[in-house]
């Protein structure tokens, strides 16, 4: 029997959906020995990279990390795994999509593929998780794959309220698959140029231009007014683009 490759799934609160998907057998990560590692909310912000490992820098963050990992792994060492999946990790791709779908839907504006590629690279450079991953790669990480935890779910909260996605860019609901494909392509190439893999959101889960079909919302999403977290089924669908 061939030995299993070591897979670490690192993330923020969206990691919950992956764990459940794994526990429920919706995704098996065949051929891998899987470990989860990460933290949510403010504790996620207290995870930093240094000395060859991701590490929690406060006792509270460390407590969460140990709850998530279950193997007592306080540090997630670059050298200990064959593959890292950065799941969720606050990529905030909805901001990128909102800005560019709005632009693409405006007949008086345009952007070339070359300029879009530069903008996508700049967007990624501004993500803390990407910068941490770059340090891991410098320290010899073999494979790092980013997985986007999905656009907010449609219909859970009023997205036209101030501070929500549609407040500034209402026309993005008109975006078509070809608009999204152009942006996914630019992001994929930008990740590839950094040496990372990328799993974008399956287009069959997208509705209303750049929202996730509410059937993939986390359980009780409406009661909690939580448009951001997704169901285990969504996490499985996403990760099955790369893992069995």
């Amino acid at each position: 029997m061939p030995s299993l490759r070591k897979l670490a799934i690192f993330g923020d609160s969206n990691l919950g959906a992956v764990r459940r998907a794994f526990d429920e057998g919706l995704v098996g990560f065949r051929g891998y020995d899987v470990e989860f590692w990460g933290a949510a909310g403010s504790e996620y912000r207290n995870i930093h990279y240094g000395k060859g490992a991701l590490q929690a820098i406060t006792p509270e963050a460390e407590e969460t990390v140990l709850l998530v990992n279950r193997n007592g792994r306080k540090h997630l060492k670059t050298a200990d795994f064959d593959t890292f999946v950065f799941y969720g990790v606050r990529l905030r791709l909805a901001e990128f999509f909102a800005g560019y779908l709005d632009l693409m839907l405006d007949s008086d504006r345009a952007i070339s593929e070359a300029a879009l590629g530069v903008a996508a690279a700049q967007f990624l450079q501004e993500r803390r998780a990407v910068r941490m991953a770059l340090l891991m790669r410098e320290d010899g990480a073999k494979e790092i794959v980013f997985a986007y935890a999905g656009f907010p779910c449609w219909g859970v909260v009023n997205q036209q309220e101030e501070g929500r996605l549609l407040a500034d860019v209402p026309r993005v609901v008109e975006a078509l698959p070809e608009h999204r494909a152009r942006l996914w392509g630019a992001l994929e190439r930008a990740f590839e140029e950094l040496g990372f893999g990328f799993i974008g959101q399956p287009d069959e889960t997208v509705v209303q231009g750049m929202f996730t079909d509410p059937v993939y919302a986390v359980e009780g999403a409406a009661d909690k007014e939580d448009a951001n977290h997704k169901s285990p089924r969504f996490a499985a669908l996403l990760l099955k683009k790369r893992f069995d």
């Binding site: 609160s13 919950g16 959906a17 909260v157 939580d226």
Partner: peptide
């Protein structure tokens, strides 16, 4: 900057704790 709605962090923690508890 787009403000995160109040309580977002709390929801995040709930999600994770529920899955890993």
């Amino acid at each position: 900057k787009r403000r995160v709605k109040a309580g977002a962090d709390v929801k995040c923690e709930e999600e994770l704790l529920n899955a890993f508890a």
